[in-house]
Write a protein that binds this DNA or RNA. Structure first.
Ligand SMILES: NC(=O)c1ccc[n+]([C@@H]2O[C@H](COP(=O)([O-])OP(=O)(O)OC[C@H]3O[C@@H](n4cnc5c(N)ncnc54)[C@H](O)[C@@H]3O)[C@@H](O)[C@H]2O)c1
Ligand SMILES: NC(=O)c1ccc[n+]([C@@H]2O[C@H](COP(=O)([O-])OP(=O)(O)OC[C@H]3O[C@@H](n4cnc5c(N)ncnc54)[C@H](O)[C@@H]3O)[C@@H](O)[C@H]2O)c1
Lengths: 243, 243
DNA sequence: AGGCACGTGTGAACGTGTGCACAAAGTCGC
DNA sequence: GCGACTTTGTGCACACGTTCACACGTGCCT
């Protein structure tokens, strides 16, 4: 085996067999899962890498490599069995169990999130709503909004394992610290700040402004290109004029 | 110059001088920008790569390399002038101009987006709200909700350059097709579907479920590790038992 | 004016992710 | 049962991104 070792030593075997799925792959698994569920609903029983890749918006080679990290769940000459693949990906993502989610900050966004049905459909159960304002005590989406003062208590009692932060930016970091102290290690952050957390705590952020700014960047490039303008030259002239 | 050319030919010079900022860098510029604005508000006039990197949640080396793609805007031995860097990044991202945004789908999420103040603060102006339901004709955030039937007309008249889709999944692709046909080339999509678009159109998606699923994956890994359980072995046993 | 301390800018090494191309493995028709 | 055809799984090469480490430019202090 290993007929042509690259060149000399190889620090560590790495990816010995399947331990450790690449981060980029993990980020795509939910997309595949959604495409598969959609296919299943339309009655498909098997699907080729080509078809599934098209539905997920990736290339077939990438899809196959991604799936190969979970194991060999396809059949050569045929494709993948939809049901089985749904099961395997769900298991890998940990969706066989229910995840208990708390939302902190029940303003515009918090309300929308609390009322959103798309969570429950895939193993995420919103079990607690927390706020510091007048909304405390009100019923939202079938839950009574609790006070952040009781955060530690609620987290423990409701066995929350994932927290969603939807408060204004200024409140986010202190809140995050309390959540971490209460034992939370997975946070989804909507506030426009970079949360500082200790090792072992995973934060993912959803940032509207950032997304729009990235779109604006590319849009600008396009306009400049169409007009045959070199953005850097224009900028340079602009800077010089300002001096 | 070029004392040790790697090996033989190099397809294209690439990154000749500054043309083409890496995608990964572009995605971080908005974060730097926010950190800088925050620093400016606190009265800082200069900042080192170390400080700014900490505020942005990246390493200082990464920050410096990112900024070096825009030009040499720092001063050795001192750091970066906050105001000037804000200006340069804003310019690079195309924030010196106002971007006209339309939101399609004024439900739970659409309302929250329309009422959100964070857009206007950085050059994004919501100029049109569109829906197909009962909300048409109502006033939301100072704008009258128009009917999607008039989409093409509104896009042209309001000179919309960025569209936000916040409709249910099923409506997203047809809507996207119409937006593209109307000349839109930048779309921010909240619907849980992969939009198919022609070359030249940029889509970015914000996907709550995906984010939660990624968190769940890592959370699961952690639990398994703590218990000393090998997830693959457990899964294998599970599969065998099911046969 | 000259030395010193500081922090940027960047070359080079390394690691991760993507795309290509094809052998291997399976199915289906006959 | 066998051969032709289909499609997976993967080795390899390349592209992209990150990290390291330090030379060099800059301002400050004496
Ligand atoms: N609304 C949007 O579309 C949108 C879009 C992008 C980002 N965001 C971000 O999401 C966050 C929430 O936005 P929003 O529009 O819902 O704001 P909002 O002002 O409507 O709601 C914020 C809520 O947080 C509560 N709150 C404040 N301090 C708190 C604390 N210490 N503990 C608990 N709750 C606290 C307030 O009582 C309020 O109910 C903001 O950071 C905003 O920047 C919102
Ligand atoms: N609410 C959330 O927190 C949340 C979170 C994640 C993702 N999403 C996604 O965002 C989207 C919107 O969510 P929501 O909660 O606001 O849903 P919603 O049902 O409250 O609102 C959808 C709106 O779209 C309108 N609409 C339907 N078809 C349309 C069409 N063809 N053209 C124009 N408008 C049309 C409806 O009239 C309605 O007002 C959904 O795809 C949802 O999956 C929502």
């Amino acid at each position: 085996m290993s007929p042509s070792r690259p060149n000399g030593l190889s620090r560590q075997p790495r990816n010995v067999v399947s331990r450790g799925i690449p981060e980029a792959t993990v980020a795509r698994l939910p997309v595949y899962l959604r495409a598969l569920v959609s296919l299943a609903e339309r009655g498909a029983t098997t699907v080729s890498s080509e078809e599934l890749a098209a539905a997920a918006g990736v290339t077939s080679a990438k899809l196959r490599k991604d799936l190969s990290h979970l194991g060999s769940y396809g059949t050569r000459g045929v494709g993948y069995e939809v049901e089985y693949l749904v099961y395997q990906i769900s298991r890998e993502l940990g969706l066989s169990q229910d995840w208990r989610v708390a939302i902190v900050g029940i303003g515009n966004l918090g309300h929308a999130l609390a009322n959103y049905g798309g969570f429950a459909s895939r193993g995420f159960r919103v079990v607690a709503l927390l706020d510091a304002g007048e909304v405390v005590g009100e019923k939202v989406a079938g839950l009574t909004v609790a006070s952040v003062d009781d955060l530690e208590h609620v987290v423990k009692e409701q066995e929350v394992s994932i927290a969603v932060i939807a408060t204004p930016g200024a409140a986010a970091q202190p809140l995050c610290d309390r959540l971490v102290a209460a034992g939370i290690t997975s946070i989804l952050n909507f506030a426009p700040v970079v949360l500082q957390v200790p090792e072992g705590v995973k934060v993912r952020k959803v940032d509207l402004s950032t997304e729009l700014q990235i779109l604006a960047f590319h849009e600008q490039r396009k306009s400049a290109a169409v007009l045959g303008i070199d953005a850097d030259v224009v900028a340079q002239a602009f800077v010089e004029a300002a001096q």
